[in-house]
Simulated scan of single mutants.
Amino acid sequence: MNRARVLWQRVPAPVVDIILVAVTAVDVWLNLWDATRTDVALAALGCAALAFRRRFPLGVFLLTLPVAVTQPVAVAPLVALFTLAERCRNRRLLAGCVALAAVASSVPWPAAFTEVGRTMTLIDFVYSLATAVVPVLFGQLLQAHRDLARRLVEIEEAREYERSLHAQAVLARERAQLAREMHDVVAHQVSLIAVRAGALQVAAGDADAKEAARTIRSLSVTTLDELRTMVTLLRASGGNATELTPQPTLADLHKLLESSGTHADLKGELPPTVGTPAQRALYRTVQEALTNARKHAPGATAHVELWQDGDDVGVTVTNSPPTRPSLSLPGSRQGLVGLRERADILHGTLESGPTAEGGYRVRLRIPLSAD
């Protein structure tokens, strides 16, 4: 039965309407063989009106009533009643239409109100009433089935939303726990490293040792600031009242250069139409390039240039050769890898490598419309 219903639902609605009009026309043609031209015209109008039963169910039902008057059991009014019951939620209107269809089917045509005729009319009315109730019940059943299916979909969507909220709550708790661990353990250890490095810088007598201690302290302080920013973000996403830290944009480049610990200058500017993701990528590129210059090229100067080339924008960071030996610091090279991944996401390119003068250059190019 389910398979037959699925197949029937796949039939286009106009095809179904044409079939119903044809069936009711055959029904009228078989039963009105001795009718007048007026009866035939009214019956034809009622059958043709079934093509519009989906848009005007009540009007089509009223147009099919002459068919019910001229023949005992007509298919057209039953189809119209079914369509009306399938779409209407007014029970009083449906009850009135059932009574009207029963009266139209039971009224003698032509009228003959003899004593026997009245009795037969009453019997016909009861029979017609029972006949008219059947399509209404089927229509209401189909309407209830659709309402139930819609309600089940809404319940499933609500459950899916609740599952999503639960997953987000679990993730928020895990982030809050991770933030506490980073604050209580990692940040504390990095703070101790910075303090110890500062003490070593003061107590050391060798210039190289002082420089190494200064570098360790500087890196520790920078790492501590980044850890605090990460803790703030994790706590914010964990559901606490702390608000998310605004993501950096091109307007923050001057502040970045001033706090980079490297002699750097900024040239060029970009149009205000550069999207936020592109601005963030440009900022992170400059940040990573200056960090690498500070770590691997002590005493070097850096030049940051913002530029636009047609539909592309970008930034080039070039640092000069180091003026003093660099310390052997551990590095995972994940910074440049992350920048390349960010560039790929924005459909851009990242180029990096040493210069002919012994320095290093990082160049990012991304579309102006990157979003």
Rank of each mutant, 00 (worst) to 15 (best):
residue 249 T to E: 11
residue 363 R to S: 08
residue 149 A to P: 07
residue 212 A to Y: 04
residue 28 V to A: 15
residue 176 A to E: 13
residue 340 R to W: 00
residue 27 D to R: 01
residue 8 W to H: 05
residue 18 I to E: 05
residue 70 T to G: 03
residue 274 V to P: 11
residue 338 G to Q: 13
residue 150 R to L: 14
residue 122 L to C: 11
residue 359 G to M: 02
residue 363 R to D: 12
residue 206 D to E: 06
residue 102 A to Y: 12
residue 201 Q to T: 01
residue 167 A to P: 00
residue 172 A to S: 12
residue 326 S to G: 14
residue 266 L to H: 01
residue 300 A to D: 08
residue 74 A to N: 05
residue 295 K to S: 12
residue 206 D to S: 04
residue 178 L to R: 07
residue 192 L to Q: 13
residue 110 P to Q: 09
residue 303 H to G: 11
residue 212 A to Q: 05
residue 127 Y to E: 11
residue 81 L to Q: 12
residue 335 G to S: 13
residue 13 A to I: 13
residue 38 T to M: 06
residue 20 L to K: 04
residue 353 G to Y: 06
residue 114 T to K: 00
residue 19 I to T: 02
residue 356 A to T: 15
residue 25 A to H: 02
residue 278 A to Q: 05
residue 345 I to N: 03
residue 220 S to P: 09
residue 209 A to W: 02
residue 35 A to H: 06
residue 146 R to I: 01
residue 58 L to Y: 02
residue 225 D to N: 06
residue 329 L to K: 03
residue 145 H to Y: 09
residue 342 R to S: 10
residue 267 K to Y: 08
residue 330 P to G: 10
residue 149 A to K: 15
residue 30 L to T: 13
residue 231 V to Q: 09
residue 242 T to A: 02
residue 87 R to H: 09
residue 296 H to I: 13
residue 153 V to Q: 13
residue 322 P to L: 12
residue 257 L to Y: 04
residue 234 L to D: 07
residue 159 R to I: 15
residue 17 D to W: 10
residue 292 N to R: 11
residue 205 G to Q: 10
residue 221 V to F: 07
residue 53 R to V: 14
residue 90 N to C: 07
residue 161 Y to L: 10
residue 296 H to S: 15
residue 365 R to E: 06
residue 179 A to P: 02
residue 179 A to I: 03
residue 264 A to E: 12
residue 332 S to G: 04
residue 196 R to V: 14
residue 226 E to T: 15
residue 191 S to H: 08
residue 195 V to N: 06
residue 237 S to E: 08
residue 269 E to W: 07
residue 131 T to E: 05
